[in-house]
Design a protein around this nucleic acid. Structure first.
Length: 264
DNA sequence: ATGGTTGAACCTCAA
C-alpha cells in the first residue's frame, strides 16, 4: 500500500514564483504537482532547480501567457500536449501524462481554463468552447481502467458556498451560470470534485485577488479543483487547500489544492 | 470602496 499526494497550483509565473515554489515543494513534499500559468517557454523553465528537488518534469510552455506542467517524483510516461488536434489554438493550457508507480499507474492532467474577461467578450466565447473541448477530452477517457486526476485552474466557483459574496458575483466571470453549467456537466460525466467530496460543508477558497487586501479580508473564490474519475475517487483519502503560502512574501494569487490517495 | 495589484513585456495587456 502506497500513499501519494497530488496537488494543483496556479503559480502566476514560475520565474517570479521560484522561491515560493521551492519552499512549498520542500515543506509540503507533494509527489505530483500540476502547475498552471508558467508564463514562459519551456527553455525558460527553472528545470535544474526543480529536478534537484527530486521531480521529473513535463512541460507545455508558452511565451508570456498560460503554460502548464506536470512535476512527478515517479517516472512520467505517455505525455501529450494540448486538448485536441486544433492546430489553430496557440494557447498552452493542457498537458496530460501517466504517473508510473511501482505497482500502479495514475493518469494526471493539468488544465488552465481561460479566465473569460467578461460575459459579453470574445474571450468568454473562447472559454465556453474550451469547456466543450475539455468535455470531449474527458469523454475520450471513459472506459479506461486507470485512475484519473484532472487538476487545474478552472476559473469557475461551482456553488454559492465557493465564493465570499455570491450575490455580488452572480453573472460575473468565474461565477456565471453558463460556466457553472459547464462545470456541472464535467461532474455529471462521472467526475467528482475532490475537495467538495472530502469536505461537503466547508467554505474555503483557492484564489484571492491581489487587490484590496482580499486574502486578509477572506474575500476569495474556490476556482482551482481536482476532478477525479470513479477509480481515483475510490482511492482519495482527503483533499485540502494549502492556503498558508498565500500569506508568504511574493505569493501567487492562488493556493495549492492537495489530494491524498491510497494506491493499492 | 465596482477599487486597484501583479507579471511580462512594452510604453499596455491579461488576469
Amino acid at each position: 500500500m502506497t500513499e501519494i499526494t497530488i496537488a494543483t497550483w496556479n503559480v502566476n509565473s514560475i520565474k517570479a514564483r521560484l522561491p515560493v515554489v521551492e519552499r512549498w515543494l520542500r515543506e509540503a513534499a507533494p509527489d505530483v504537482v500540476l502547475l498552471q500559468e508558467l508564463k514562459t517557454v519551456d527553455e525558460g523553465f527553472p528545470r535544474t532547480e526543480i529536478e534537484d528537488l527530486g521531480y521529473n518534469i513535463a512541460l507545455h510552455g508558452q511565451k508570456t501567457y498560460n503554460g502548464v506542467a506536470i512535476l512527478s517524483r515517479f517516472p512520467l510516461d505517455d505525455i501529450s500536449r494540448g486538448l485536441d488536434n486544433d492546430a489553430s489554438d496557440e494557447q498552452a493550457r493542457f498537458i496530460e501524462g501517466v504517473v508510473c508507480l511501482p505497482h500502479a499507474a495514475v493518469r494526471v492532467a493539468s488544465v488552465y481554463v481561460p479566465n473569460g474577461e467578461a460575459p459579453d467578450s470574445e474571450k468568454f466565447a473562447y472559454k465556453m468552447r474550451f469547456f466543450e473541448r475539455l468535455y470531449r477530452k474527458m469523454q475520450s477517457w471513459q472506459g479506461l481502467d486507470e485512475a484519473i486526476v484532472l487538476g487545474g485552474d478552472y476559473n469557475v466557483a461551482p456553488e454559492e458556498m465557493d465564493i465570499y459574496d455570491p450575490k455580488r458575483w452572480d453573472g460575473q466571470v468565474c461565477f456565471h451560470p453558463a460556466e457553472r453549467q459547464h462545470f456541472r456537466a464535467l461532474k455529471n460525466m462521472g467526475f467528482v470534485d475532490a475537495y467538495r467530496e472530502a469536505r461537503p460543508t466547508e467554505h474555503a477558497y483557492s484564489w484571492w485577488d491581489y487587490r484590496g487586501g482580499a486574502y486578509e479580508q477572506g474575500k476569495g473564490l474556490r476556482i482551482d479543483h481536482l476532478l477525479l474519475n470513479p477509480q481515483a475517487t475510490d482511492m482519495m483519502q482527503d483533499t485540502w487547500i494549502d492556503s498558508g503560502n498565500r500569506a508568504w512574501e511574493k505569493p501567487s494569487d492562488h493556493a495549492p489544492v492537495v489530494g491524498k490517495f491510497k494506491i493499492g
